[in-house]
């Protein structure tokens, strides 16, 4: 089966307080379509760095990130921006909703998303009575679901979700996992960072990251 995401020999380091810190070391990863892959690890283990590199949000020190066979860091900034918008849905850990747009428009802001599609996803995530509220009028959990809707509404090839269920109760966390599973079952690929044990019920594979090294605890099918 062809890989949607192919990560080859990825490494990343940066300098802080005069010290060189190696965050990722020789990471190799492949996610095929219809697969949901979870990454777990302690805080500071490099999860977010891995997700940002896979989402073409941050250039790694070395290695390749291929999305649908294209090296995202070989593209020009303008082409990468277009490619990222069409192929990747990214759910930031800090959500990053646009504060001056209402819930519906925060989803519609993504290119190619109609009002109908946005509404459909928001209703699916239990936000049908919050469509015209601005983010500051929502609870954190509601904002997380809006960010999730924004990440998947345009049907990208890959959805990357960084701790999408932090601060959510069990019921809402399952709702989010369920939506991502449904997205994967529809042909998309999902890369998710999550601590919750419940992720095991949804993910095809669970990877662990420690000191920049990636290991696998639940092998995929």
């Amino acid at each position: 089966m062809d890989s949607v995401l192919q990560v080859e020999s990825l490494a990343h380091s940066y300098t802080a307080n005069g010290k060189q810190l190696q965050v990722l070391r020789d990471v190799n990863l492949s996610i095929a379509c219809s697969k949901m892959v979870a990454v777990q690890g302690e805080s500071g283990s490099g999860k977010t760095t891995l997700l940002l590199a896979c989402g073409a949000m941050q250039k790694p020190t070395s290695g390749k990130v291929l999305l649908n066979q294209r090296d995202v860091f070989d593209l020009t900034p303008a082409a990468r921006s277009q490619f990222r918008a069409s192929q990747i849905g990214y759910l930031f850990q800090t959500l990053q909703l646009v504060p001056y747009l209402n819930v519906l428009d925060n989803v519609r802001i993504v290119k190619g998303v109609t009002a109908g599609t946005a509404k459909q996803w928001l209703e699916r995530l239990g936000l049908d009575d919050r469509l015209h509220h601005k983010p500051d009028a929502l609870s954190h959990g509601q904002r997380q679901r809006v960010a999730l809707a924004r990440a998947i509404a345009h049907r990208p090839a890959l959805v990357i979700a960084d701790e999408p269920t932090g601060n959510l109760d069990g019921k809402n966390a399952r709702l989010v996992f369920d939506s991502l599973r449904e997205f994967a079952d529809g042909g998309g690929a999902v890369l998710i960072a999550a601590h919750e044990p419940a992720i095991a019920d949804f993910a095809d594979r669970i990877l662990h990251i420690k000191s920049g090294h990636l290991t696998e605890s639940k092998a995929g099918v």
Partner: peptide, 14 residues
């Protein structure tokens, strides 16, 4: 500035 990053991530060109 962070809004610039978000808009870029959503496909807004420079």
């Amino acid at each position: 500035k962070s809004e610039v990053g978000v808009l870029q991530a959503l496909g807004y060109g420079q």
